[in-house]
């Protein structure tokens, strides 16, 4: 009763297709919805959360359609991306108020339980306006968990968090997933979701581009060819030496410097410095040329 099912779901705005024929099933455990900005992750999450009507296809959450159906929020908790909450309330009042909106029999106890899960008891009597970004995210998660829903949806929960807060949130999501809940979160920062041991669904340009075990997809990513731009005191001589290294698969002299393709990220970055020292060539600049998320995701789509 805690699965999310999409069957050939599409959503368009006028002539613009935001979600294109997506079919997926999301069950218990942690699932990441990943993709570059503008790929349609939020649209997909909004469709699942009942805040957008599908243009075509079938979408059910715990067996019922989510659009025009406020009843699904008894089984679904939603953590929206936008930071706006009733900032004049204390954290405790915000969570307790949400419990009352759910008509829970004991709103105080439910609020305390949810605040305990996100470890916010110490700050619960302060106004939300005084909270840090990470604390706001956690209190929003507490509000979404107050009715103990089997399904939790989170829109970009790691946005604006520092690494420590991100790890904390990751651990929390894992604990919730291990309890048998269905946890679905979106993120455009693939590299930063490193503690994830669940499945991911990669969305690129409105389509489901990859789907499966996170570690397998991550391995694909780290072993992909990397492109660097190098500027040195003698590009041509360094290029000649580099092409002899096994980690390098291509070298090109360009007006802006040397473009190097490497098959092994770690080996190349280690060897480059040693090589430059031995050849007495001065390194002026080293830039990864394809580290943009779009190129990472595009690579995934092509493989």
């Amino acid at each position: 009763m805690s699965t999310i099912e999409l069957s050939h779901v599409s959503r368009w705005y006028g002539n613009v297709v935001a979600i294109n024929d997506v079919t997926m099933t999301i069950g218990p455990g942690v699932t990441g919805l990943l993709g570059p900005n503008g790929a349609g992750k939020s649209t997909l999450l909004h469709l699942i959360a009942g805040f957008l009507a599908p243009s075509r296809g079938e979408l059910t959450v715990a067996g019922t359609a989510s659009w025009h159906n406020p009843g699904i929020y008894r089984t679904v908790g939603l953590v929206p991306e936008r930071d706006s909450v009733y900032a004049f309330l204390t954290g405790e009042a915000f969570v307790r108020t949400t419990a009352q909106l759910h008509k829970l029999p004991d709103p105080e106890a439910a609020a305390q339980r949810a605040i305990g899960i996100v470890e916010m008891a110490d700050a619960q009597d302060r106004r939300i306006s005084t909270y840090s970004k990470g604390m706001r995210q956690r209190i929003k998660v507490a509000a979404a968990l107050v009715h103990d829903p089997p399904i939790l949806l989170l829109d970009e929960p790691f946005n604006g968090m520092d690494p420590r807060q991100r790890l904390h949130m990751m651990d929390l999501l894992h604990r919730l997933g291990e309890q048998g809940r269905t946890i679905l979160f979106s993120s455009h920062i693939l590299e930063e979701v490193e503690r994830l041991s669940g499945t991911i669904q990669v969305i690129v340009a409105g389509r489901l581009a990859a789907s499966g075990d996170f570690r397998a997809i991550r391995r694909l990513m780290t072993s992909r060819p990397h492109v660097f731009m190098v500027r040195t005191s003698d590009d041509r001589r360094l290029g000649a030496s580099l092409i002899g290294r096994p980690a390098v698969t291509g070298v090109e002299l360009t007006g802006r410097g040397l473009q190097v393709r490497a098959s092994d990220y770690g080996a190349f970055t280690r060897e480059l410095a040693v090589l430059a020292r031995d050849e007495e060539i001065r390194l002026r600049e080293l830039l990864p040329a394809d580290e943009s998320l779009e190129s990472v995701f595009t690579y995934l789509v092509e493989t």
């Binding site: 406020p70 929020y73 759910h102």
Partner: peptide, 15 residues
Amino acid sequence: DDGSIVHLLATPVSR
């Protein structure tokens, strides 16, 4: 406007 309505609408309260 500020988006906080989502917190209210993501509960089973009738519209």
